[in-house]
């Protein structure tokens, strides 16, 4: 998987400017790269996370992390236009496969790639992984509440 350098980002963007989710459900804490075409986000996994269950981050935690990463990518467009972040809703999750679950102390990297857009719906391919292993992959449809 390609790793993006932080220098390639056009400017520093605050996550709060890209997604409307706040604590305790904000599921990305670092934005390494965000353009209208792709994004690379990070999350330090902790047992204090609301979606941590038993000894691991749950499926719901991984999906929310991927969803917010996709919504952040969709939010970049608004940010570049200088308007507040729109509420990006997930319309559909497809072909979502869970490979492994990250645990306390691990860092999750999530990669979003723009695929297509039609009728106000944007399609993204997403993969989430730790340094150790791939965690999950899926295809998500995001629609923006203008």
């Amino acid at each position: 998987m390609t790793s993006f350098s932080e220098k390639s980002m056009p400017e520093r963007i605050d996550i709060n400017d890209l997604i409307p989710q706040r604590e305790p459900v904000q599921m990305i804490d670092t934005l390494y790269e965000a353009t209208t075409e792709e994004a690379h986000t990070g999350l330090s996994v902790s047992r204090d996370n609301i979606f941590y269950e038993g000894d691991r981050l749950s499926e719901m935690g991984l999906i929310e992390n991927m969803a917010q990463s996709a919504a952040a990518t969709a939010g970049v467009k608004n940010h570049l236009l200088g308007i507040p972040p729109s509420l990006g809703y997930i319309g559909e999750i497809k072909k979502c496969i869970f490979h492994s679950f990250p645990t306390d102390g691990e860092h999750l990297h999530t990669y979003v790639r723009y695929v297509s857009e039609a009728a106000g719906v944007i399609l993204y391919d997403i993969e989430s992984r730790t340094d150790r292993a791939s965690c999950a992959e899926c295809r998500m449809k995001v629609f923006i509440d203008e």
């Binding site: 989710q21 706040r22 459900v25 609301i50 935690g61």
Partner: peptide, 16 residues
């Protein structure tokens, strides 16, 4: 507790 952040002042049940 999820509604504190999803979204502040506008509670919507998260899809997840």
């Amino acid at each position: 507790d999820v509604y504190r952040g999803h979204f502040p002042g506008k509670p919507i049940s998260p899809g997840v």
